[in-house]
């Protein structure tokens, strides 16, 4: 009987420990940005979800490309229909790892430079990426800010000849996640 109680206690402790390992956000943002003398494209998506495991450094982030909003309705239409083809490829996913996770002390406030690598899928095309970013811990919230560029060609996104001067091949992505501890309710 006693051993059973101990077992239950151990499991309870374990599950509490496991809950604290994962952090989640469903309101992350990705801004995309391209600027040429002819044309500036700015889009924002505030419905990006991500889960981070602070023990292993595993990160998953995903979003639906239709959630991107642009200032000009016509740009939004072209983005969905001609470039990203959101009917055919509705989502973008990143699966990877923060490489220097063991250097980060999640028990207290602090700020770190992080290196992460993994597979990024956009427009149905997957590329291996390795980028740097910043991770800040403040009052139990983990904030990750990452800026990097993706090449349209690398993700097989075609730009018509007549627009080649207006749209850069390198598109800047500005990513912002505020993760909170993940507790599965009930």
């Amino acid at each position: 009987m006693k051993s059973r109680i101990i077992l239950v206690l151990i499991f309870a402790c374990l599950s509490i420990g496991m809950q604290a390992q994962k952090y989640i956000t469903k309101t992350g943002t990705i801004e995309i940005f391209s600027e040429t003398p002819m044309f500036t494209i700015e889009g924002i998506n505030r419905k990006v979800a991500s889960v981070i495991n602070v023990e292993t450094g595993d990160v998953v982030a995903s979003t639906l490309v239709r959630s991107f909003k642009f200032k000009e309705a016509l740009v939004e239409e072209h983005f969905n229909e001609n470039y990203i083809e959101s009917d055919k490829f509705p989502k973008s996913i990143f699966k990877g790892k923060i490489m220097n996770i063991d250097k980060i002390d999640f028990s207290k406030d602090g700020s770190y430079e992080i290196t992460f690598e993994g597979k990024l899928t956009i427009h149905g095309t997957t590329n291996y990426i390795k980028e740097k970013g910043n991770l800040t811990i403040k009052e139990g919230v983990i904030t990750v800010i990452v800026d990097f560029s993706v090449s349209l060609k690398a993700y097989k996104i075609k730009v018509e000849k007549s627009y080649e001067d207006a749209i850069k091949d390198d598109i800047l992505l500005k990513i912002h996640f505020d993760y909170k501890p993940y507790n599965k309710k009930k």
């Binding site: 979800a49 639906l64 509705p90 989502k91």
Partner: peptide, 11 residues
């Protein structure tokens, strides 16, 4: 309706 996400569900 934007689609289905593994973390968010239907968005």
């Amino acid at each position: 309706c934007d689609g289905f996400d593994m973390i968010m569900g239907v968005v």
